[in-house]
């Protein structure tokens, strides 16, 4: 919203804060003993990612993230966890005590380390700049309000029109699939 923000130390600070938040809660997701706690942690991590989106100037995506993930997908998750009894701790079979934690650490270190190193070795000239701002375009009613939603919408319905249709088809198939899965239960009961 405030064009000067992205070049300020506040911007970097916000990115790092949201990033730490995301990584911290993300690690809770994979370590929490009860699935419902993992789900809560995931909600938190998703909010942090939404915050990152917002800081990076993708406001529409931030809103969609919260709406779709937190309001939709995570409610579904919690619903399913309730159905399958998420209160109980999951019985994690461990051939050797602590091997799971060890494996997780190794995985995080190897994959994360290589990605981080790769990112670090990238060109330092990479600089993030805000997308086109309303200040630059005189079309918006109010100066200072980003046109991100409009721009994403335009892109979505012009350049990405075909993928958009394909995605809607995918969603339709998913709906049909979910309905079939839910219906299957009643068939079982009848016989």
């Amino acid at each position: 919203m405030y064009p000067d923000l992205q070049s300020s130390p506040w911007f970097l600070g916000a990115v790092i804060a949201f990033g730490l938040w995301a990584v911290a809660t993300g690690s809770v997701v994979i370590t929490a003993q009860r699935p419902v706690h993992a789900a809560l942690a995931l909600v938190s991590a998703l909010m942090a990612v939404a915050g990152l989106f917002a800081v990076l100037g993708a406001e529409f995506l931030a809103g969609a993230q919260v709406l779709v993930y937190v309001g939709g997908v995570m409610v579904l998750f919690v619903f399913v966890i309730m159905v399958v009894g998420g209160g109980r701790k999951t019985a994690e079979v461990e051939p050797v005590s602590g091997v799971r934690f060890l494996a997780a650490t190794v995985v995080v270190l190897v994959i994360g380390g290589s990605i981080v190193l790769g990112a670090r070795s990238a060109q330092p000239a990479f600089e993030l700049r805000p997308g086109p701002r309303a200040a630059a375009s005189k079309d918006a009613v109010r100066a200072g309000v980003s046109r991100n939603t409009e721009d994403v919408g335009t892109d979505l319905y012009t350049r990405a029109a075909l993928p958009f249709e394909v995605a809607s088809l995918l969603l339709l198939v998913a709906i049909v699939g979910a309905v079939v899965l839910a219906k299957g239960r009643r068939v079982e009961q009848d016989d």
């Binding site: 406001e59 529409f60 809103g63 969609a64 919260v66 937190v70 309001g71 409610v75 919690v78 309000v145």
Partner: peptide
């Protein structure tokens, strides 16, 4: 700029409060 979307999005978080309370 995403005011209405944000309102709907955050309102949907309230659902989680209710669901988790019940659970």
């Amino acid at each position: 700029n995403i005011g209405l979307l944000f309102l709907l999005a955050v309102a949907s978080i309230g659902v989680l409060g209710i669901v988790l309370a019940g659970w």
